[in-house]
């Protein structure tokens, strides 16, 4: 075993390291530097000013956007957690053959490999003013006016998040459930535990790491998202990511960079809290 400064391992890890250095580390460094720069309508002006941050942190638009984004993140997290856990539980404990488990699990994952944008567009004919949901409700007489909140609303944004991200909960939770020793459940049952006690006191604690990995995925993706908010919100709803995207469109790069740094710090704080609770590398 070679533990020197340079080994075969270093050579083998070189392509990955260089790619991440070039397209992750340098770009983030550039963002941090530019966030302290000045700008006018024509150009970026190198320097060291705190104006971008000062403007950002004193603007009510920023706080409103953060509030909105946290609202999306927490709602999506709660729904995907309950839904994802139930689906994973069904696959892991109710499906008896491995073949069937694999098949049903694949059905859950296939949409992940298709376009998110198209999956969002697909909701339009269902949720629009003249969409299928409204037509159906009108025809049954349950409502007299088409429901307006179905599309381009907080509802449609969270619906799309749940649609896109539940898989990120199902996969890690299913993975940890499959590694639970079934004898533990037998033992709990023999000791007189009721089904709900087995669920809450045996299975949920043993799935902790899967739940945390899923939560990390869902929370960070919603926090940084701008695509779903802009398509499903119809341009009427703000999120942190969308503010950055708009600043980019207006070529206000230093302002966008400062917003991006603050978003990054927010996400890092959330991650630090979550990583405290789980060592992800042990769980693979």
């Amino acid at each position: 075993m070679n533990r020197g400064l340079l080994s075969v391992s270093h050579l083998q890890a070189l392509p990955l390291s260089l790619t991440l250095l070039m397209f992750l580390v340098f770009p983030i460094a550039v963002i941090i530097i530019v966030s302290f720069w000045d700008y006018d309508s024509y150009q970026l002006i190198p320097g060291f000013i705190l104006d971008n941050y000062q403007y950002l942190l004193t603007s009510s638009v920023t706080w409103q956007a953060y509030l909105n984004t946290f609202k999306y993140a927490i709602s999506t997290w709660l729904i995907t957690l309950v839904l994802g856990f139930s689906i994973a539980y069904y696959l892991a404990f109710h499906i008896r053959t491995t073949r069937m488990q694999t098949l049903l699990f694949m059905l859950c994952t296939i949409p992940f490999f298709t376009s998110n944008i198209i999956r969002m567009i697909s909701w339009i004919p269902l949720l629009g003013r003249n969409g299928m949901v409204n037509s159906f409700l009108l025809s049954t007489g349950l409502i007299e006016q088409p429901l307006e909140f179905l599309l381009y609303s907080d509802f449609s944004i969270i619906l799309a998040y749940v649609h896109l991200y539940t898989l990120f909960m199902v996969t890690p939770i299913f993975n940890t459930m499959m590694r639970i020793d079934r004898r533990l459940i037998e033992a709990a049952r023999d000791a007189g535990a009721a089904p709900w006690q087995i669920l809450l006191m045996v299975i949920v604690p043993l799935c902790k790491s899967g739940i945390l990995i899923g939560s990390i995925f869902v929370l960070t993706m919603v926090m940084g998202d701008f695509v779903t908010v802009s398509i499903m919100g119809g341009g009427l709803h703000a999120s942190v990511g969308l503010i950055i995207k708009n600043e980019i469109s207006l070529l206000q790069y230093p302002a966008a960079a400062a917003s991006a740094v603050v978003l990054l710090i927010t996400v890092l704080i959330m991650l630090m809290v979550m990583f405290r609770l789980v060592d992800i590398r042990k769980e693979l």
């Binding site: 992750l24 580390v25 770009p27 983030i28 998202d225 990511g241 991006a260």
Partner: peptide, 22 residues
């Protein structure tokens, strides 16, 4: 390198876009 790779996965995409663009 491992944590850098994880960071690459969960970092908000808009930062990658903005950073590489800049």
């Amino acid at each position: 390198l491992f944590y850098l790779t994880l960071a690459s996965l969960i970092i908000p995409s808009i930062l990658i876009s903005l950073g590489i663009g800049l």
